[in-house]
Design a protein around this nucleic acid. Sequence first.
DNA 1: TGTCTTCTTTATAAAATCTTTATATCTGCT
DNA 2: AGCAGATATAAAGATTTTATAAAGAAGACA
Lengths: 228, 228
Amino acid sequence: MNKPTILVIDDEVQIRKLLQITLENSEYNVLLAATAKDGLVAAANHKPDLILLDLGLPDKSGQEVLKVLREWFAQPVIILSVQSGEDDIVLALDNGANDYLVKPYRTGELLARIRSLIRRSVPGESSPVITVGQITIDLVLRVVKKDCEVLKLTATEYSLLALFAKNEGRVLTHHYLLREVWGESYVAQSQYLRVFIAQLRKKIENDPNRPAIIVTESRIGYRFKGNE
Amino acid sequence: MNKPTILVIDDEVQIRKLLQITLENSEYNVLLAATAKDGLVAAANHKPDLILLDLGLPDKSGQEVLKVLREWFAQPVIILSVQSGEDDIVLALDNGANDYLVKPYRTGELLARIRSLIRRSVPGESSPVITVGQITIDLVLRVVKKDCEVLKLTATEYSLLALFAKNEGRVLTHHYLLREVWGESYVAQSQYLRVFIAQLRKKIENDPNRPAIIVTESRIGYRFKGNE
DNA sequence: TGTCTTCTTTATAAAATCTTTATATCTGCT
DNA sequence: AGCAGATATAAAGATTTTATAAAGAAGACA
């Protein structure tokens, strides 16, 4: 459940800054580009979830950018422009824009239109399932299975296991685990970790006395071993 | 490829006429409705490819119509309204509108926005009847049955159940449920949720003391379990 | 106006989970 | 082997969360 990424292509630095702050406050990742060229490169490299495109770019017309973009970019594009002529709007929409806002626009409305487009742009998403050995974790459904059998985990146990599964094979330090699962102020509570690791092992290990999935790295942390 | 069908819901006869002519000239089939009630019926019967909805209807607020519609209608909805306030626009978009045009709008722009939405809309069908285990939910008629027997649910109970049914198997957090059913300002009222979950269980569970359909995920939320 | 339905609050019991404590076991080192 | 620090585990205790009934409030409707 990552934050969506939005690419802003606008040549005015103040607008870029303003949008960056606004969007980051609304829990988006923000990429910035000042020219058409940079914008297209950034779009290709980062595959943003949505693009905010200014029509008045120095190096290339925004309409051109839109056309080029639409040859491969399927995510939503919102045009921001000072041009309020109907011809511009119709052209942009027919070139593949999903929306067109005339500057100066209202921030709340822009955010609502972004929400609306992002909400609908998740068509064929396959629920990300992590499979490690006999353990299966469906992060969307929030279901953990061992050999097709559903396990009952508490919220904390689940966070811990999900964190391990996302870092299969890597050693996770006590400090890191405590900070990620319990929060910054619990980094000294190593005993928590021991208690919950024991509980998890009781539920997922074949022989909890000989842990094979969550192995302890003494004095450092724990490691989640999937296969071999 | 058939001509796309557009449903116009507006109480002013001149606007209906005008839109009908405009749209038919642009190769669309047009359906007309003058009230919220007729509009909802027409939407259910004809499954249009797009709806143009006026916010100022005599019998019911357009925002209400939108919410009810969105319980099962997945195709695009464009709001046409004399209201130009940001709050109205944001509310409509968050209620599921795909676009919002302030009257008087420009015809060319409206047509371009319609083209844009229809181009992008997936022909994917959304079955308006969900069956999960013994429970059947008709999202169009808003009727819930358990083993062919109609259950009497209040509006809130229905919204909650419909939301669950649309997300079968996945954990829905307290926060999410409260926001979707009651609205953003109620996200802290977890007690509501408990009360209504208890009421729902009394109505749909075989043994309300041992919930098998709506199971609680302590400290996280609830999960709607269909079969298995 | 009174009745009915539904929503909202309050109160309390029950359940689940988290936290702490106690003790046993392990690990690496001299 | 013996020690010290680190880890494992069970179980008691404390706290939070959940379930449920029921009372009060707010509307709808005739």
